[in-house]
Amino acid sequence: MSKAKGVAISAAPRRNSASSGLRFLRTIADPAVLFGFLVFVAILGAVQWLVASGHISRAIVALPSDAIAGLFSPEFSGELFRACRLTFGLVVSALVLEILVAIPIGYFLYRKPVFGAAYESWLAALFAAPIFLLYPLFMVIIGRNNYTLLFMGFAAGVIPIIIHARLAFMTVPDTLINVGRSFHLTQSQIFWKIILPSGVPTIFAGIRLALIYTLINIIAIEFLVDAGGLGRMVSDRYFRFDIAGTYTAISAVALVSVTLNLIINRLEKMVR
């Protein structure tokens, strides 16, 4: 496990960006990537033909060309921008809350191993549980507003950070802590100067997971209750039986989440 400190983090991007253009070109030129892309286009073309020729009803599958054209209409991009702003605003707020809540809990579970052992299996179960199903309850408790979305995002993301934070602290080598003790550091100094920094990579893995969980859950609930940003864009068009629009909105959400995943991967490489 590498010890990524603040200095390393800020130095990394510059090194990356210099070669990233080159790396991109090399990726594009890879015949395999080209082949994959051609197959993707061929599939779209086949669907286009099937729908245009009436083999598949337009009331079921939209013409790919219509769906793609929809992405470029000015009203759509305006709406997409607003939806992204709302959804990401919620995701970021939820994530900040998750970090603030989960890391102290993770630390507590590490300091008090009996509690850690007691809650370990519960946390694992919660992690695999369909947390988003709780939304009808919070709809009636909190009401149909952004707080419900925020809370549901939080509930989904807080668990992986707790699990990872505890794991991160548990795997800090004892020798490091002993070194700290030999320098007569206080418990809080040991935490801030030794435990937390050396746990960063693992905690970051948890945060990354939490980010995806939070995003997925918020979009899911936006879709189910027809509120908020990105998820609502899909459910709204589906509700209006706008088939081409539904496909367009789904593609847009797909593009947004692919972009986000790329960014996260890049960030993660920097931290490592």
Binding site: L224, G231, Y238, A254, S257
Partner: peptide, 17 residues
């Protein structure tokens, strides 16, 4: 790319198909 997405937004397509 697809794995990191909220699959729920594909529901309309699944329902249609």
């Amino acid at each position: 790319a697809l794995a990191g997405m909220p699959k729920i937004i594909f529901l309309p397509i699944l329902f249609l198909v």
